[in-house]
Amino acid sequence: MRSQSREELLYGLLVGIYVAFLGALVVRLILRVFSGALLQAVAPLSATLAIALAAVLGAFLVLAFVGGIRYLLTHCLTAATLPPSWTLLHRILGTLALVLVILSLFGLPRSGLQSLALATAYLQLLPTLVLAYLALTYPKGHQPNNHPLGGREGDLTRLVVDLTVWGLLLGLLAYQACVSNTLYLLFRIHPGESEFYYQEGLRAGMLIALWLTPATLGARWMMTIAFLVDWKGDLLVSANFVPLLQFVLVWLSLAPFMSAQGGLRAALRIGFGLCLGRIVGRLIGALLLGQEGPPLLEPMAEVVLALWLFPLIQQQQHPHDFTSQNA
C-alpha cells in the first residue's frame, strides 16, 4: 500500500504544481488587466488614490488565490481527507490547460519567436489540449490511498507545498506592486519590469519557506547557501561556473561536521540533486509559459531533489543536526 501511495503522491505533486503555477499565470493576467483598467478609470481624479486602490484590491486577490491553493494542495496531497478533492484538482488542471491554449493562440503570433520555434510552440498546444481533455474527463470519485502522510514523504510533500505557497505569495505581491504602479511611485521602478520582480519575489518566498518547513531541518544553512548561489551566483562568477561554486560551498559547509569521505559523499549527492533539479525544473517548467516557464520551477526542483537525496546521509551516518542549530 505504501509503495502505491508513493507513485500517486509524486503524480499528485506534479499536478498540484501545475495547478498552482498555471493558476498564477491567470491571476497575473487578471491583475494586469484589472490594475490597468482601474488606473485608467481613477487616475484622472487622483493618481495616488488609483494606485492605492489597485494595490490593496490586488493584494486581496493574491491572498485569496494563495490561500485557496494552500487549502487545495494540503487536502489533496498531505491529508487526502476530502473525497472530491482529487477530481476537483484534475478539473481545475484541465480548465487551466484550456486557458493556457487560448492565451497561447492570442499570444504566440505576437511573441516574436523564430518561425521554426513558433511552429514547435504551436505543436506544443496539441498535447496540451489532450492534457486538458484527459484532466477534464478524469473519473469522479477516484481517490488515492486516504492515509495521512507521515515521515520523510510527508515532510517532502509539505516542502513542495510550502515552497509553492510562499513563493507565489511574495512573487504575486511583488508583481501586483509593480503593475499597480506602487513601486513606480515609491522607487521609480517601471511596471514593465513586473515579470522580473515576480521571479525575484518567487525566489525570496522560497527562501523564507526553506526556514519554515520541517523537511529542511539540519540542512537550512547549507540549502540557503546553495539557494543564494543559484540565485545571485552569476554576480560573482560566470553563469557556467555557478553549479561548481554551489558544489564547493555545499562541501565546505558540510566539511566541519563530517569526516572527509562522508562530507564528500554528502556533497556529491546534494550536488547531484541540485544539477538534476535544474534539469527537471526546466523540463517541467517548459509546459507553462515558454521563455518564462523554466526559470520559475528551477529553484523549487533543485531544493526538493537535493533534500530528497540528503537525508540518506543524514539518517544513516549523522542523526544529529550538523549544519544548523535550529532544530
Partner: peptide, 27 residues
C-alpha cells in the same frame, strides 16, 4: 503502479513540456 488515466496525463505533460523546451532551444 500508476492508473491508466494518470499514465496518459503524464505522457501528455511530458510531450507538451518537451515541445515547449525544444521551442525555447530553437528560439
Amino acid at each position: 503502479r500508476l492508473g491508466q488515466k494518470e499514465q496518459q496525463i503524464l505522457i501528455a505533460v511530458v510531450a507538451a513540456s518537451l515541445l515547449g523546451w525544444l521551442s525555447i532551444l530553437i528560439h
